[in-house]
Amino acid sequence: MSIIIDQLNYTYSPGTAYEKQALKDISLVIEDGEFIGLIGHTGSGKSTLIQHLNGLVKATGGSVYYNGADIYDADYNLKELRTKVGLVFQYPEHQLFETTVLKDVQFGPKNLSLTPLEVDLRAYGALKQVGIPDDLIDASPFELSGGQKRRVAIAGVLAMEPEVLILDEPTAGLDPKGRDEILDQIAKIHDERHITVILVSHSMEDVAKYVGRIIVMDHGRAVFDGAPKKVFSHYKELEGIGLAAPQVTYAVNALRERGILVKTDATTVQEAKAAVLAVWKG
């Protein structure tokens, strides 16, 4: 069970003056249960790529297989695919529309021909999982704080019980604590529900801390793919494409250049701390 992306190409407005190739020959295998960070500067093709994974955009070349089935087959059920692959857009709170938090989260599962009880259970479960307290479920979504609204919007997708959860910059505009809270909750959901999570992010620090695999996009191509340590060891190349490594990766490399023989593969504060202490304590 996996997502296989095979030689995927996508061109916007082909045959017009605005023709632009957004994806170029992308081939990737995403296994069940992976926690992936998708990084790249604005315009690198990240958002275009994720919109292919639930069939919102159809490739101009290549194929996408979901659990072995070609999603571009004439009789493939795209509607069902969209319930399995949940996409949380940027600023998802702009899509809240119902009169209460609960109703908003119920909206998705209500369209899945479930019994009212199942709909309720899913909505309550999803709200609990994103950490919305019970006393807020009958409030208007518009009365909540920015971080709470965002979590309600994520709950709306979770209530669909997707097998793959894709989040496009879920922490944009939140304060530091709010960022940590959302990411901790996503990590918890990944662990508890055993689902695949793809996190699109501009924060290298966050990606290094949470994900097991990083895919780096540049000009429509996947240019690096691997564990954070491996990808961030290319920090000089990453800079060349407008990205960077976490600050601590620079710190350990700079120490090494100064002749202090620390291990240079640290990508988180804890790893860097261990590397520096190992040398200092001898």
Binding site: D175, K177, E205, V269, V276
Partner: peptide, 23 residues
């Protein structure tokens, strides 16, 4: 700062953690 939901730059946090560990 953290008690006000703020953070510090990652390098500041690393130095702080190392200091706590005795450096």
């Amino acid at each position: 700062l953290k008690s006000f939901r703020m953070d510090v730059p990652q390098i500041t946090e690393l130095a702080y953690e190392l200091k706590k560990a005795g450096m």
